[in-house]
Design a protein around this nucleic acid. Sequence first.
DNA 1: CAGTGGTCTAGACCACAAG
DNA 2: TTGTGGTCTAGACCACTGG
Lengths: 233, 233
Amino acid sequence: MSGREFNSWQTVQTEVLRRINAREWKPGDFIPNEAELAVEFGCARATVNRALRSLAESGLLDRRRKAGTRVAVNPVRKATLSIPVIRHEIEGKGQSYRHTVLTQERAVPPAEIRARMRTEPGVQLMHLVTLHMADGKPYVFGNRWINPKAVPGVETADLSSQSANEWLVANVPFEGGDFSFSAMTAGTQEAEILACRQGDALVVIDRSTWNTTHVITSVRLTFAPGYRMHTEI
Amino acid sequence: MSGREFNSWQTVQTEVLRRINAREWKPGDFIPNEAELAVEFGCARATVNRALRSLAESGLLDRRRKAGTRVAVNPVRKATLSIPVIRHEIEGKGQSYRHTVLTQERAVPPAEIRARMRTEPGVQLMHLVTLHMADGKPYVFGNRWINPKAVPGVETADLSSQSANEWLVANVPFEGGDFSFSAMTAGTQEAEILACRQGDALVVIDRSTWNTTHVITSVRLTFAPGYRMHTEI
DNA sequence: CAGTGGTCTAGACCACAAG
DNA sequence: TTGTGGTCTAGACCACTGG
């Protein structure tokens, strides 16, 4: 006796998941509404809401007011990809980190960058080429443009002791960004900088970040051969 | 005259974000506890909790019982990467989709696959090589292993009309998976199948999915040159 | 031990959208 | 119009963990 009834939102969530997996509720089916489930599970409606909302956020349920809740027909899986600061990524593997600024200048960017950064023709940006090393070996090569209008103070910042990435993360809040992932073949420049062979396949990440008024920075990271980005679903 | 005070959890969240961005609360700082914020914002503690929990989930706050809530020192940005069914990805660009099964057999997998799928030596798995085409041109090449023990019925399924990926998504619920992203150089086999040149850099995705008892499937997707995966932060 | 976040409840009102 | 999810509240107890 005793054995207090235990219906946390996680209990509810687990049971709902079980029913979906057991196909008691099939993709496309409507499930009972919150009030009914609350009665069935002997808990408050808010508790059911918490459980179902969480499942909806991960894409397993579709919820709409008035219509109700149904099992997602096409469970689009979402992986959350964490984007660490490169130094942390390297140190996290137990390797030593070092970085070098290869060039730092003010320059008018090429058209492609100008489009991505939404600046006017002829406007100069800060251009920074850096190399990050793990245990002394080239790890990733960064080609970065920064809009000084969006980042007051960047011109006087010391970007040799702290990488531009870290300086920006620590000093410039941003609202959003985009991120893309592709592959390229190492040419002479990449082979030289990354100490690899021409023709090696390299992972390339292009990333921009912006705040409400400006595109802050746009960077292309070119990784040494063998790089692999990993995540769990 | 009314003008009822309006303090939704999103209002609270927005204000907290503003303070973080304005550096009123700096990285590493403790912020007031839930009860205090509830008083300040004139709302219930649960409302503050909802706002802060959401920010913690996205990595901007660190919360610990007894210790309190602090602004994350190292805001690890997380991108959510949605993993669509290839057919949807292609059709979403307005291209036509077609796929072909190149080979389908039962076979003992190589050691690497056996390790990933956690099967015993000598156990046969289903092995499936498929090519997906966009507007008639090779788009991605899939090398997939499926554990029939985890998927009763897969041996009799018709995987030529519906791709293995879609069949699995529709018929086999899974609990988790992993996902990795790398680059490789096209060899003779890849060049032939994807109709590209040897030496081209190709994007490679390795993915496994499992349920509580088995690894269900493990697949390597090798994309034709030019593939780019994109996401927003 | 005691302070903080984590969760649950019962009830209420609201916002949205299907019919 | 009306049913369903979305949210808010005031209060309560719990769970974890720092001091």
